[in-house]
């Protein structure tokens, strides 16, 4: 064996081993000690992927965290159950300033508007709230809307009002039974400060994510930003918990479609690197 052969062999093997070692040490560090937070989620907050294309050949299972944002505008109520496309009510000018994004002033020139439009998403820490005030407010708002529309339909024979009432009732059913109760309610740049503000680790999780400044033109509250996504919203299911998720259907396509699959409770921990993992899972009656 000549020297160059040995050098290449050592370099290649070394590279593969070092990369794997770094990844595994990272994982071990993330999962070491007490988790940063521990949320008990259900089929409402964790969804299985839709089987399409070559995904049907995938023998593994990865769940997706279903998160939402409190709405900034009543007009966007339809997006309530999707909860991702609408501006976040709390991501106002003051919060954006705190996160280092200067909102666009109403007196902005064309050049300033162009510069602002080029500002992309910013990486921040996001606070996830499980089944807390944000969910209850959303539920109350949907109830109120359903009640108002039902009253209006009762006092009129207009088909549009009847359709509106049906739609509002379906939204309410969805909100009560299957919509996610996991809301992104705050953002910050400092983990300790956020944790001091939200000390309950079984209701509030802090994760990495991205926010987007408000759009220059478009609907919605002009100065409310958007939550663009979580850095890691996928939770892999290990072999031992696979039976719990058997026969769990993917999220419904149509509004008003009732969830007919098995119910489960899954404990998802967020570790020191703010990356999630599945700690336990069991079927619910």
């Amino acid at each position: 064996m000549n020297r160059s052969f040995i050098r290449v062999l050592v370099a290649g093997v070394g590279l593969i081993l070092v990369v794997n070692a770094i990844a595994l040490v990272r994982v071990a560090y993330n999962r070491s000690g007490e988790p940063e937070s521990l949320l008990r989620l259900s089929q409402r907050e964790l969804s299985v992927p839709r089987p399409w294309g070559w995904r049907t050949e995938n023998s593994g299972l990865t769940l997706t965290l279903q998160w939402r944002v409190p709405l900034a505008d009543e007009r966007n109520v339809y997006y309530g159950f999707a909860g991702r496309s609408a501006p976040a009510a709390w991501l106002d000018a003051a919060k954006l300033n705190e996160l280092g994004i200067r909102p666009l002033q109403p007196s902005a020139t064309e050049a300033e508007k162009r510069r602002y439009e080029k500002v992309g998403p910013k990486e921040v820490l996001l606070v996830l709230e499980l089944d807390g005030p944000a969910y209850r407010a959303a539920l109350e708002r949907t109830r109120e809307s359903a009640r108002e529309k039902a009253d209006a339909a009762r006092n009129s024979s207009a088909p549009a009002l009847k359709n509106g009432a049906d739609f509002a009732q379906k939204l309410l059913d969805q909100e009560e039974q299957s919509s996610s109760r996991l809301f992104v309610i705050d953002a910050g740049l400092d983990l300790e400060r956020l944790r001091a503000k939200y000390p309950n680790r079984s209701q509030y999780a802090i994760v990495h994510g991205r926010i987007h400044p408000p759009r220059v033109a478009g609907y919605g509250q002009p100065n409310a930003g958007y939550v663009e996504g979580l850095a890691s919203d996928q939770v892999n299911v290990s072999l031992e918990y696979r039976p719990v998720f058997d026969a769990v259907p993917p999220p419904a396509y149509r509004l008003g479609e009732r969830y007919g699959g098995p119910k489960f409770e899954a404990a998802v921990a967020i570790g020191k690197r703010l990356e999630p993992w599945l700690v336990s899972a069991r079927r619910q009656p």
Partner: peptide
């Protein structure tokens, strides 16, 4: 595949650092 699947198995946040190795 090794690096991608490690990321998937342990829910590691995607990073451009993987491009280097």
């Amino acid at each position: 595949l090794n690096v991608v699947m490690l990321g998937q198995i342990f829910n590691i946040t995607p990073s451009d650092k993987a491009l280097l190795p």
